[in-house]
Design a protein around this nucleic acid. Structure first.
Ligand SMILES: [Mn+2]
Ligand SMILES: [Mn+2]
Ligand SMILES: [Zn+2]
Ligand SMILES: [Zn+2]
Lengths: 136, 136
DNA sequence: TTATCAGTTTGTAATGATTACAAACTAAAA
DNA sequence: TTTTAGTTTGTAATCATTACAAACTGATAA
């Protein structure tokens, strides 16, 4: 075997092509919630024939199969995340970095949505991060 | 005098033109978090010369002046809200309605972001609403 | 009053992200 | 080898948003 990511994709019903493995590895190893554009340009070096359409298609498959998620933290920039446990995101308006944080969703809303069937939860914060704060 | 919305806009540093008053009134009276498209087509009746560009411009001004906010609850559909107190949104995947709910943000994240300066908070839930649940 | 001027509105053109589509390719099965 | 299903690629189409400049408006100054 020797290829963990390939096996992981197979387990999730995704045929592990070279492109798919590379894209998933990149998403897994990169903690900055990359966009389609940044994934494409990061991989274009090792895969010169890579098409942006393939990046779009592959990410859509990952999301459909539940091994990645899309984060629309700002109009007109969709970012992707291989860390799929429910968690919140903080976006720094200075350095544009996106940080993860843990959220206790239950405590935050009480019983207001008791008759609603909740399938997905997102929390986004915006502001200035610690590191940017220290520079001023 | 006699025009509350006009005065309200003036108070917030916005010159109260006919278009701006109508757009703000619509946003205020409509609880369904309308899009640019739905605002435009709702008002096009009474203001036949209305331009979609004016709707975009006006909403941008409202947001800059802090009397409205943009909600990107789903990729490729930006919605607008005149209710600017911090609150959460639930989007029904069946009827596509967007519901407001109250959120206790402090309790939800603890002290994880203590050194971060938080300027804006958003919470989005997705699922099936009560009314759609009852139909099945 | 008329002339001027800043701000507003409008229509059209440009942009840019995403999607549609069909041809080329790949790898496994028959 | 041939077939076939699935994958990748490049190009074209779509669609929301933005840029831009001309037309308009309403207030102010002469
Ligand atoms: Mn994350
Ligand atoms: Mn709302
Ligand atoms: Zn920062
Ligand atoms: Zn519903």
């Amino acid at each position: 075997m020797m290829n963990n990511v390939g096996d992981f994709l197979k387990t999730n019903g995704i045929k592990p092509s070279y492109q798919r493995i590379k894209i998933y590895e990149y998403l897994m190893n990169t903690k900055d919630h990359p966009t389609v554009e940044s994934i494409y340009s990061a991989l274009n070096g090792q895969i010169p024939t890579l098409s942006k359409t393939t990046v779009y298609n592959t990410l859509k498959i990952f999301i459909d199969k539940g091994i990645a998620m899309a984060i629309t933290i700002d109009d007109n920039e969709v970012r992707f995340d291989a860390f799929i446990d429910t968690h919140g995101h903080f976006k720094c308006q200075e350095c544009h970095r996106v940080y993860d944080f843990h959220v206790n969703f239950e405590g935050a809303i009480g019983d207001q949505l008791d008759d609603f069937q909740i399938l997905e939860q997102q929390m986004f914060f915006y502001g200035i991060c610690r590191s940017c704060n220290e520079k001023s």
